[in-house]
């Protein structure tokens, strides 16, 4: 087993090295003008320069902060609202169809509306992120509550549990897998919308920085920004999958 994964790692690294070499060959041969397409070493140099004393570090922090605030806001509101709607069969019947109707609406289509109300401001970006990331969590919580084993509701009635206790002790744990999966999706959406919001509203951050870099043809800085954005996405989803595995350990027995 150990040997197998070593082989996988070695082969994976080999391809990665080949990939970067191929990238270098393409740019060295000037198949694409270096103004548009920097080689790996120039990207790396821009990355190092930007992160050590350059503006890139501050912009990364800015974007990550924006993404996290929006995501946390969306998660809190989504799970809370979802719990309130999901626990009552009547509320579900009245509200869930409207939510399903709104779900396919692209979150970015709300950006102009948010701009109309809040102008080009940090609040606008935050609202857009929160709105976009809200849907997966809200719907996952509602569906998770609706899919709870009906016997458990009967048990809770027999035990005389209050509504709050039902939510906290039975419904939330049983909806947990769906909620956790949606948290990961929500984080991805948050990152995308943070970048789009920064580009449109010119708020400080990586989105604005890569757009500015492309407009002044600083392609190395542009690629450095893209590399960092990829790293943010990778770290975010890795951390959340780790949390997911830890929190769902109790489920492994049933599966």
């Amino acid at each position: 087993m150990n040997r197998l994964s070593f082989r996988k790692l070695a082969l994976g690294v080999l391809t990665l090295v080949l990939f970067i070499l191929g990238w270098k060959l393409v740019t060295d041969a000037r198949l694409i003008s270096p103004i548009f397409f920097p080689g790996p070493e120039r990207t790396y140099a821009a990355l190092v320069k930007g992160l050590s004393g350059g503006p890139l570090l501050a912009q990364t922090v800015e974007t990550v902060e924006r993404m996290l605030y929006g995501w946390l806001l969306a998660s809190a509101v989504g799970v809370l609202l979802g719990a309130l709607i999901g626990i009552s069969r009547r509320a579900r019947a009245f509200i869930a169809p409207t939510l399903e109707l709104l779900r396919p609406l692209p979150a970015s289509a709300m950006i102009p509306v948010a701009i109309a109300f809040l102008g080009f401001s940090d609040q606008m970006v935050l609202v857009v992120i929160a709105f976009g990331a809200l849907w997966p969590m809200l719907l996952a919580t509602i569906h998770g509550f609706a899919a709870m084993e009906p016997r458990l509701y009967e048990v809770s009635a027999v035990l005389g549990l209050s509504r709050f206790q039902v939510i906290w002790k039975l419904a939330l744990p049983s909806a947990m897998p769906m909620i956790l999966a949606s948290l990961r999706l929500g984080l991805t959406i948050s990152l995308v919308l943070a970048v789009v919001g920064e580009m449109l509203a010119s708020r400080a951050g990586l989105g604005q920085s890569i757009l500015a870099a492309s407009r002044s043809f600083r392609s190395a800085d542009l690629f450095a920004g893209i590399v960092i954005l990829g790293a943010i996405g990778l770290c975010g989803s890795r951390l959340l999958s780790m949390a997911e595995r830890r929190l769902l350990r109790w489920q492994a027995v049933h599966r």
């Binding site: 995308v192 492309s214 542009l222 920004g225 990778l234 989803s237």
Partner: peptide, 16 residues
């Protein structure tokens, strides 16, 4: 490694 790069980050590149 390539998958988590948000697609919107590619807008400036493709624009250029």
């Amino acid at each position: 490694l390539l998958r988590p790069v948000p697609v919107v980050a590619l807008i400036p590149v493709t624009m250029m």
